[in-house]
């Protein structure tokens, strides 16, 4: 009986917002699809509640492996604070450069504020403004490639909306983000460069359909254009399946196409992300 009560209490402890409205965790720590942010505030906390999430993500293309861990807190469905650390293992490039085991690490601290709207309940989309402070931790390689700085700030504006019964009677969602950034490969290769050093606008989008209350499928696009002349970079894309068995756990599996990453072309592979919400 006590156990049942405890389980019942826990079932409500994650907050009151509807399932999946907190999205998954992005590689930069906040709520979103996976590669791109949403305007949603992480977790399930309604206006009177606090929610929190923790996650681990791995993207494996064979030549590269990106591991990310992070956590975020959503305050009163208004403010989101997040922290994450990324480690990109140069599985193929390291040995080729005579640096077996080489990796690039980055820390990201994020804050997001919901400016207006509600993902689910208002006619207008939910709109949020976010900042991400990024600090590259292994700058030697990025510096050698021409990056100017090992730390910088991204600023982004996101709009996200769920269209109830939007596609053939199924709930659908659409999210768009415009980001001002100087990042090379999201910051893993530092910020700025020799040629063009200023901030650029990057456009990002994700959209999908909820096949049921617990399953969503969709796609993401993250426009990128770095400043490094030596290593061109590509937009990132993925096709994902997300599973929300309850408010405490979500799992995203995706097939990701990262294009050319640091001279190695055709970087495609699997994306797996697991989130716990409290």
């Amino acid at each position: 009986m006590a156990l049942a009560l405890a389980a019942g209490g826990a079932a409500h402890a994650a907050g009151s917002r509807q399932l999946a409205t907190g999205g998954a965790s992005t590689i930069e720590g906040g709520a979103g699809g996976g590669l791109v942010p949403w305007a949603a505030i992480t977790g399930y906390g309604a206006r009177e509640e606090i929610g929190a999430t923790a996650f681990a993500t791995r993207i494996n293309t064979g030549d590269y492996r990106l591991d990310v861990q992070g956590a975020a807190v959503g305050l009163f469905n208004r403010i989101e604070l997040s922290a994450s650390r990324q480690e990109l293992d140069l599985v193929a490039l390291g040995p080729a450069l005579g640096l077996p085991g080489a990796h690039l690490r980055q820390h990201v601290i994020g804050a997001k504020v919901r400016l207006a709207g509600d993902v689910l309940y208002t006619r207008m989309p939910q709109i949020a403004l976010g900042v991400q402070y990024k600090k590259q931790q292994d700058f030697a390689l990025a510096r050698a490639l021409g990056a100017r700085d090992d730390a910088d700030v991204d600023v982004y504006l996101s709009a996200t909306k769920v269209f109830l019964a939007g596609v053939g009677g199924y709930n659908a969602f659409l999210s768009g983000t415009a980001r001002l950034t100087r990042a090379n490969e999201t910051g893993l290769l530092g910020f700025g460069g020799e040629g063009r050093n200023g901030r650029r606008v990057a456009l990002e989008a994700s959209g999908g359909v909820l096949l049921s209350r617990r399953f969503a499928i969709g796609a993401e696009y993250r426009g990128k254009s770095g400043s490094l002349d030596a290593v061109r970079e590509s937009a990132w894309r993925d096709l994902f399946v997300a599973w929300f068995p309850n408010r405490h756990v979500s799992v995203v599996v995706a097939y990701a196409d990262l294009g050319t990453v640091a001279t190695l072309p055709d970087q495609t592979g699997w994306y797996l992300s697991v989130q716990g919400a409290f």
Binding site: L120, Y121, R123, L164, A165, G168, G169, N171, S212, R213
Partner: peptide
Amino acid sequence: PTRTQNRMLKHFAPMRA
């Protein structure tokens, strides 16, 4: 069916305000 549930939510969600 999920689609009936969604139509129901679509109809009643705007009453939140």
